[in-house]
Design a protein around this nucleic acid. Structure first.
Length: 220
DNA sequence: AACTCGGGGCA
DNA sequence: TGCCCAGAGTT
């Protein structure tokens, strides 16, 4: 596994590669953020951003989602995937906010995770972006990149990946690290075709070196 | 631990 | 045009 200093070095390189890796979520209020992140499960932010403007004009508060019919809400989010689950979860979640939290979005990860459609990743994103709770949200990009680079172990589960990242990275860098690893994973260290041949991290990346060796062997 | 949900994106 | 992606919940 990489040491703290090696992780720092890797993050600096990634920062150079993606200077634009800043927070993509700029929702003015926690409720809209929560809905947007729940919607974004299993699809890209770009896709969600197509429906949210209209959605947030029509639905302002939890009551609006509770009062609308399941079918109508499904139609309003039809263009993203998994719309039946998501519509159901959003109605249920809104009901919980009204019944248990006076219509407000709760601030702790535990409370957030108790809501329908909110798992560990979503809870971390909302807690950190809306309420500035230090957290590292581990999505598949962050997990894959952390494992390939050797920031954590291959066998680690999501919780362990999260703990290792928090241990090896200073708290004030968590938010930035989250975005850097996402950009790096999405555009460079991709699941199917990682760009190892042009990667500035190749020297410190065991997985990358393994892949390059395999490639060499195939060619000659 | 493996499967399901369901679109859009892309080869 | 068919394979691939993404996160939460269920079994």
């Amino acid at each position: 596994m990489l040491t703290k200093t090696q992780v720092q070095e890797a993050l600096l390189h990634i920062g150079d590669m993606f200077p634009e890796a800043e927070c993509e979520l700029t929702h003015s209020n926690p409720f809209e953020l929560l809905i947007a992140v729940v919607l974004s499960a299993q699809c890209t932010d770009a896709l969600v951003n197509k429906v949210t403007p209209g959605l947030f004009e029509k639905y302002i508060k939890p009551e609006d989602y509770v009062e609308v019919s399941q079918e109508e809400l499904e139609q309003d989010i039809r263009s993203i995937g998994l719309y039946r689950n998501k519509a159901k979860n959003i109605k249920k979640l809104s009901q919980s906010l009204i019944e248990q939290y006076n219509g407000e979005v709760p601030q702790t990860r535990e409370e957030l995770m108790s809501l329908a459609g909110v798992g560990r990743k979503t809870a971390n994103v909302v807690a950190s972006v809306a309420f500035h709770t230090p957290a590292i949200a581990v999505d598949t990009h962050v997990e894959r990149v952390s494992k390939r680079l050797g920031i954590c172990r291959w066998k680690d589960n999501v919780r362990e990946v999260e703990e290792t990242l928090m241990k090896k990275i200073p708290k004030e860098q968590w938010a930035q690290t989250h975005h850097r690893l996402i950009f790096f994973g999405r555009y460079h260290c991709k699941a199917k075709s990682p760009q190892c041949h042009i990667c500035p991290l190749l020297d410190m990346c065991r997985e990358g070196q393994k892949r390059m060796k395999k490639q060499e062997a195939r060619h000659g």
